[in-house]
């Protein structure tokens, strides 16, 4: 039991830390893994793959689309849910097109 609790806690900590340092990398990793599984022959693996893709999309910061990193406004992760009459989210604007330089 103790080993199970410790393993769970350590696994969660590694997950949170990885997500903190590189959320996009984690999200893309999950998305890629989910995509591979979704193409597998096993129906169970396919289902798991779909779940993983949805999870990766939901993990995308600010409701951004998991596949591209930008908001597509049509996938489940990007589309605001109308479960309540009031709902809001922040859309990160694309920022600098050219690198800033001071010369």
């Amino acid at each position: 039991m103790e080993t199970l609790v410790l393993s769970g806690l350590i696994g969660w900590s590694v997950w949170v830390t990885l997500k903190h340092f590189s959320p996009k990398l984690v999200q893309r990793g999950l998305y890629t893994l989910g995509s591979h599984w979704a193409k597998a022959h096993s129906p169970l693996l396919q289902k798991l793959g779909q779940r993983l893709i949805s999870f990766a999309q939901a993990q995308a910061a600010g409701g951004h689309c998991g596949s591209t990193g930008e908001s597509c406004n049509s996938c489940q992760a990007c589309e605001p849910q109308l479960t309540s009459p009031q709902h809001a989210k922040t859309q990160a604007s694309p920022t600098q097109e050219e690198p800033l330089h001071w010369r």
Partner: peptide, 8 residues
């Protein structure tokens, strides 16, 4: 940044 929200 632009922010979006929904209302009825």
């Amino acid at each position: 940044e632009r922010k979006e929200g929904l209302c009825q």
